[in-house]
């Protein structure tokens, strides 16, 4: 299939990173779509966990919020939020955290807190939620967000959750034993941290995308790995599963119930 949008390519490429063996802490939005496409295609036995406490959930439509009833209805079990963060996340039971963000830097640190100074922000963003501890306590982290100059910046105004910090062995120096971000999946390409410096480097380019487009849409001088492959295009199955769940989700969320509380 070559008839697909960059966002569809991003979601499908992100879904391919996951396997049946993953116990995955799912961020809302783009990560949630990717995780559920994985579950509905090649990883039917993947364990998806949302921070609302739902474990092993199998939603039929994508949740709008992290705690939609659909998540609880289809979960193997549901725990309290303190138990979720203490036993399951901090306890080291989660193999993979899947995050999005408003801004990212070359070492895969994320900002979802503020643009501008913290005390006098130009834009006040929602904040970190679960991300600071997801980023440090999951075995590894995948990040998915569209490549843009606004999003991929030279310097973050605020580090909400640490990726590779200042690069190199910064995580180890802070005592972290987890891998941190290992893949960043965008709508144009896939990035991986360089094994030594930990700087994000292009390793795979989506079909029809040029190196120039990637350079133009990144806020730092982005590097390409020695060997760069082309991301396989979405299969018909992947695309139809994604489009079906998006259509179901849209119908479910629009509803008819717009009256006031």
């Amino acid at each position: 299939m070559t008839d697909f949008t960059p966002t569809e390519m991003m979601t499908i490429a992100a879904s391919r990173e996951l396997s049946n063996d993953d116990v995955c802490f799912v961020g809302i939005g783009a990560p949630s779509a990717a995780c559920n496409i994985a579950r509905l295609t090649h990883a039917p036995d993947i364990t998806l966990i949302y921070e609302s406490g739902t474990v092993g959930t199998k939603p039929d439509v994508l949740p709008l919020s992290i705690g939609d009833g659909e998540l609880c209805d289809t979960a193997l079990f549901t725990v309290s939020v303190p138990e979720m963060f203490r036993y399951w996340l901090q306890g080291g039971r989660i193999t993979t955290g899947f995050l999005g963000g408003a801004q990212i830097d070359r070492f895969a640190n994320l900002n979802t807190t503020v643009v501008g100074p913290y005390d006098h922000p130009k834009v006040r963003l929602p904040g970190g939620g679960g991300a600071p501890e997801i980023a440090s306590n999951c075995g590894r982290i995948f990040i998915t967000m569209a490549l843009s100059k606004r999003g991929f910046v030279e310097k973050l105004p605020f580090i909400t959750s640490m990726g590779h910090g200042e690069g190199g062995d910064h995580r180890e120096r802070l005592g972290m034993k987890t891998q941190g971000p290992t893949r960043v999946i965008t709508d144009l390409c896939i990035l991986e941290p360089d094994p030594e410096t930990k700087e994000l480097t292009v390793v795979s380019i989506h079909h029809g995308v040029t190196r120039e487009e990637i350079v133009e849409n990144c806020g730092w001088a982005i590097k390409f790995a020695d060997t760069v492959i082309e991301t396989p295009v979405p299969t018909e199955t992947e695309l139809s599963v994604l489009r079906d769940i998006n259509a179901r989700t849209k119908r479910a969320h629009q509803g008819t119930d717009k009256e006031a509380a």
Partner: peptide, 10 residues
Amino acid sequence: MLRGYIGADL
């Protein structure tokens, strides 16, 4: 107490 906020700006 928690194992938290490592490397974060908060």
